[in-house]
Amino acid sequence: MHYFSQLFQYDHPWAHVVIGMWHKYPNPHCSHVVTIDTLDRSVDPETGVIRTERILGCKQKTPIWVVKLFGGSEDAFVREVSFIDPRTQQATITSVNLSLSQFATCYENIRYSPTHDHRTAFHQTAEIQSRMTLWRGAADKLESWLVQRFEQNAQLGKIGFTDVLRSLWEAKEGHATC
């Protein structure tokens, strides 16, 4: 099992970051995310919490040994469930891989919460684990490859989202002052 974690702060208030969540893709820094679909969404009339289930389609070069051993392809799908709670000002996003899930799982958790100085804390964790029914050597190799890919994508995601938030809110603020 590999564990990944990063903390970061976005220089935007919580509501702006959470509005930006829906504008993150398409993103030149994260060109591996090619499709996004909402599968389910509810607005709780009691609590105001919005729950959204989406499926993300990714296209990224896959090493030949992964394709050979596990039958993977360039197309990979991820299930993502998010909760946005305006009352507590918490947004959480949980993602898990659908592709190759019989061999390994990558559980990712993201949380956006407001800071005291009107910025937004971003806390990302991930657990990557191969299913132990596999031949040990192959399982370890698959796990390391997934970790490496996850870390690369996590960095690109951060850079990409920073750009999205900047252009989204600069454009809006620009319009407001015109």
Binding site: R51, D85, L98, S101
Partner: peptide, 29 residues
């Protein structure tokens, strides 16, 4: 989109993920 999910053969993978982790409520802070 429900038809597209079926056509791409993703339905059973989704169902499995939902069974393993329904995520009906937000994870606790």
């Amino acid at each position: 989109v429900q038809k597209a999910v079926k056509d791409r053969g993703l339905e059973s993978l989704l169902e499995q993920a939902r069974t393993e982790n329904p995520l009906k409520d937000a994870p606790p802070a």
